[in-house]
Simulated assay, not measured.
Amino acid sequence: MSQSQPPPRTGTVYLVGSGPGAIDLLTVRATRLIGEADAVVYDHLIAEGVLGLARADALKIYAGKETSKHSMPQGELNLLLVRLAREGKKVVRLKGGDPFIFGRGGEEIEILFEFGIPFEVVPGVTAAAGCAAYAGIPLTHRDHAQAVVFVTGHLRDGTVNLDWPALARPNQTVVFYMGIGGIGEICRQMITHGLPATQPAAVVQNGTSSRQRVITADLSTLPSRVTEAGISSPALIIVGTVVSLQKKLAWFGARVSSGGQEVRD
């Protein structure tokens, strides 16, 4: 009398941050898990070359989300992770930066919890920390900023719903994720709510990668400088007097635009 085979043991989903762009900023744990995974579900902002660390026979499923262009709806993606784990697979959900900083990681593991799927979270270098470091902009400095704020600048339907008075305080650095499309409104609101038009500000595009570009200006001129330079996503906006240190502290061999002039280190 034959016995039916037991159902496969439920696999585990690992939410893994791949960092801001440079593959050697991956953590050791992230590198190991990617190499062991049966399936890798990845975004469009993962570190360059990171998929090359996966096994040749591993499933590689693109689930990237770009502005106004979602290859896979979030609900469908959540159920995909559940299905792969129920098939007994070791699943790496690979995200750019850190999964818990504007990466929807919390939303995804809430669904995994509801379905009883085991999961772990592997932090990554978030874009603000990585891009600022490679641009030569310290996010905190005793003479400039005693606080740092991360905020999403993604504008829905052209509207802005942020706590501008809190963001426009002195002696802090504000980093806007996903804000390049609304940079004009962001700079205008920061001035309207108390920061001087001459407040130093910067944009870092493709931070930590060989394609990194840095634009430094002030709140009044940054939007036009970004337009002139043709900057597009992925890019971060950094506002604070720490930006004034960039010219002196820049160390990474990237294109740097300061005062409207682009140079190469």
Rank of each mutant, 00 (worst) to 15 (best):
G17V: 13
Y62E: 03
D143G: 12
G17P: 10
K60V: 01
R156M: 07
K65T: 05
Q5P: 06
G182D: 02
V121S: 11
F115L: 05
H154Q: 07
T10V: 15
L79K: 13
R32G: 07
V122N: 00
K60G: 03
V239T: 12
G253I: 11
V92T: 09
H141R: 03
G181D: 00
I117H: 07
A229L: 13
L94H: 07
L53Y: 05
K90I: 11
E114T: 12
L59K: 14
H44E: 08
P138S: 07
F119Y: 04
L79C: 08
V160Q: 15
P99V: 09
P165L: 13
H70T: 14
Q246M: 10
G97T: 13
G153M: 11
S209E: 02
P223E: 12
G136N: 03
L236E: 00
C187F: 00
G259P: 02
V175L: 00
V148A: 12
H70Y: 06
H193M: 10
A201Q: 02
L94W: 03
A127Y: 07
L80N: 10
L249G: 12
Q5T: 13
P123V: 15
T227Y: 08
L219F: 11
I215N: 05
A85T: 09
G21S: 10
G240R: 00
S2D: 09
G136F: 02
G49N: 06
Q199M: 15
Y14E: 05
N78M: 10
C131L: 03
F100Y: 14
Y14A: 11
L81R: 08
G64P: 02
F113N: 09
F119M: 02
T27Y: 09
F150Q: 10
G75A: 13
K90R: 14
A197N: 03
F115P: 08
L155Y: 06
P223I: 15
G52I: 05
I61S: 11
A129N: 11
N161T: 10
K95A: 07
A235V: 15
I109L: 15
A39N: 05
G184Q: 11
A135W: 02
G11W: 03
P6C: 12
D143T: 13
S258F: 09
T12K: 15
T241K: 00
I23D: 04
G103R: 15
P99A: 09
A133I: 05
A201K: 02
T27P: 06
P223D: 06
L81S: 06
L155W: 06
R9D: 06
V160T: 12
V122Y: 01
P20A: 01
N78H: 14
E107M: 04
D265T: 14
L25R: 04
S233Q: 11
T152P: 06
A217D: 02
P223F: 11
R83D: 09
A217K: 01
F252R: 12
A47H: 05
M190I: 11
G179C: 04
Q3C: 11
S232M: 07
R264A: 12
G96A: 03
P165A: 14
P8A: 14
V242Q: 04
Q199N: 12
A217E: 01
P73E: 05
V214T: 15
H193E: 08
Y14W: 15
I23G: 05
A217I: 01
E107R: 03
L59R: 15
G194W: 02
Q74Y: 07
G103K: 13
F176G: 13
G105K: 00
P223N: 14
V13H: 12
G11E: 04
G230R: 01
S224T: 10
A54S: 13
P123D: 08
G158E: 08
H44R: 15
R55L: 05
V82P: 07
